[in-house]
Design a protein around this nucleic acid. Structure first.
Length: 518
RNA sequence: GGGCGUAUAGCUCAAUGGUAGAGCAGUGGCCUUUUAAGCCAUUUGUUUUGGGUUCGAGUCCCAAUACGCUCACCA
């Protein structure tokens, strides 16, 4: 163990305590109240007392991490904090005797301590525990990165903080201790997931779990992570989506299913992409994409209300209201409006690329028609969708699992939801025709051969399942991380992931240079 | 993978090519109502790493590493 000078000083204190027979890491704590509850009880007693009378009957044993320290001779103040709140300890030699000297000598900011006493208000009116007994619960060796804090009108201001993003993400535990907003984000995230579950459960959906290790990956266009089962001598993939397994369940008669879980995509990392991310997918028999649209509006509104208490959020300085109906933009009309190009008039990639070139829109040579249209969407439409917007009716080439429109087989009943210029969700009237599905899979394989070295193997078992008969249904997928970004005003996905993916730096988190002098 | 930027004490940051500093934290002392407590004293550095230019490099040049922004990629 390589200790800094500051850490060595703390270790010396641990040993000094042990010499006095005081363990630095005792087995148990004997708290009677958590801090938030202790404060509530005192306030309730105050409210119930006669005017001006200060209650002195609330006794408690509480515990938490020391976050501040002010020592003055025979008197000291320290704040301790647990997950429910923060309270000042009022430490006097009058009550503590020799324990005060021990405290001054060996206790530091960052330590977990336990205190017994009576709750009072100090001269300045702050609720405090007049402490009669103190115990070390867990000595902190590494000093907290934030030294001092000030609470002004209930808002904690850090005068020295932890702001280096690399340390914040690599040592999230320190970040959580020191930056209160981080805790808030992850508590909100948990509420979001609970609200989504509550909403779906209340609409008779069944939550299921499907394989993460898959022999054939599918349901999205992304490169997978590959792994290997040693005993079975079998290559396996980490799933890139749940879609094909969930729809097998519709064949089996589970009419409404959903899954919340991790997807893995071996692609670039960005402010809205992480190699592993959390997805919600649901499938609902006898829904079509219009019903899914309405359902989505309702679900997100419900979730925002449950998680935030309001449907209005400010994201990146812009106010967004999930309480209002989403804007709806048909893709063909939207592209025509923004670029003057009506893609329906161009049936091949070549003619469409030529039309784009005429407008001065450069595209990569050899791109298939669907991808050209996709390029127009991401360049000209996506950034303009700040208010919640559904973009609907996608070309069939980029939607192999969606059902074609009856009046136009080149268009599928598919929509994506956009908020703040970011794709949030993707849904369609699911293709349930096994014969068309096989055609589409073969077509997709051809497209891959043409432009990628990637080959997406056909999932024969999925086709077999479809041949048994799949009810017409609407399906939906949404990135939970992105929804959390929107609802917590986080500008990058890393802020809503407890442990975002970072390049490996070795176990110590330091560069692995040895002590060899070469 | 490309471009741009950043890397100095435990934390937040200074330092014209000329002796590497401040605040906070730490350590020692004083202090019985503080809350960024205060006062006195004081310690801490392989300036990310490796090369180079120079009489002299934290500073200029090259390379590596990590992180940030951005582009590409991502039905």
């Amino acid at each position: 163990m390589n200790l800094t000078d500051l850490e060595q000083i703390r270790v010396d204190k641990i040993n000094a305590l042990l010499d006095k027979g005081i363990p630095a890491y005792p087995m148990r704590s004997e708290i009677t109240l958590r801090i938030g509850e202790a404060i509530r009880r005192y306030e309730a007693a105050e409210a119930g007392a006669a005017d001006g009378a200060a209650p002195d009957t609330v006794e408690a044993t509480i515990a938490g991490r020391m976050r501040s320290l002010r020592v003055m001779g025979k008197l000291a103040f320290t704040h301790i904090e647990d997950d429910t709140g923060r309270i000042q300890l009022f430490l006097r030699v009058n009550e503590l005797g020799d324990q005060l000297a021990l405290f001054k000598e060996y206790f530091d900011i960052g330590d977990f301590i336990e205190a017994t006493g009576t709750i009072v208000r100090t001269k300045t009116g702050e609720i405090s525990l007049l402490t009669t007994n103190l115990r070390m619960l867990a000595k902190s060796i590494t000093p907290l990165p934030a030294a001092k804090e000030e609470v002004v009108d209930g808002v904690t201001i850090r005068h020295t903080g932890l702001s280096d993003p690399e340390i914040r993400y690599r040592q999230r535990y320190a970040d959580l201790i020191v930056n209160p907003d981080v805790k808030r984000i992850f508590k909100t995230r948990s509420k979001i997931v609970s609200a989504l579950r509550e909403f779906l459960d209340s609409h008779d959906f069944l939550e299921v779990e499907t394989p993460i290790l898959q022999p054939i990956y599918g349901g999205a266009a992304a490169r997978p992570f590959t792994t290997h089962h040693n005993q079975l001598h079998q290559d396996l993939y980490l799933r890139i989506s749940f879609e094909l397994y969930l729809k097998r369940l519709l064949v089996g008669g589970l009419d409404r299913v959903y899954e919340i879980g991790r997807d893995f995509r071996n692609e670039g990392v960005s402010y809205k992409h992480n190699p592993e991310f959390t997805q919600l997918e649901f499938y609902c028999a006898y829904f079509d994409y219009l019903k899914v649209m309405n359902f989505t509006e309702e679900m997100i509104r419900f979730t925002a209300e449950k998680a935030l208490g309001t449907t209005k959020v400010t994201y990146n300085g812009v106010e967004i209201d999930f309480g209002k109906p989403w804007k709806r933009v048909e893709m063909r009309a939207g592209i025509l409006e923004k670029t003057g190009i009506d893609f329906a008039k161009y049936e091949s990639a070549e003619t469409l690329a030529a039309a784009m070139a005429e407008k001065g829109i450069k595209s990569k040579p050899g791109l298939q028609r669907g991808k050209l249209i996709d390029q127009l969407v991401s360049e000209y439409l996506e950034p303009t969708f700040i208010e919640p917007t559904f973009l609907y009716d996608y070309p069939w080439e980029i939607s192999p699992l969606a059902k074609r429109k009856p009046d136009d087989p080149t268009i599928t009943e598919r929509f994506e939801g956009y908020v703040a210029g970011m794709e949030l969700c993707n849904a369609f009237t699911e293709l349930n025709d096994p014969i068309d599905q096989e055609v589409r899979f073969l077509e997709m394989g051809r497209a891959y051969d043409a432009e990628d070295d990637e080959n997406n193997p056909i999932d024969e078992d999925y086709l077999r399942a479809m041949r048994y008969g799949m009810p017409p249904n609407g399906g939906f997928g949404m990135g939970i991380d992105r929804l959390t970004m929107l609802l917590t005003d986080s500008s990058t996905i890393r802020e809503v992931l407890l442990f975002p993916h970072l390049r490996d730096r070795g176990q110590t988190g330091e560069s692995a240079e040895g002590a060899e002098p070469a």
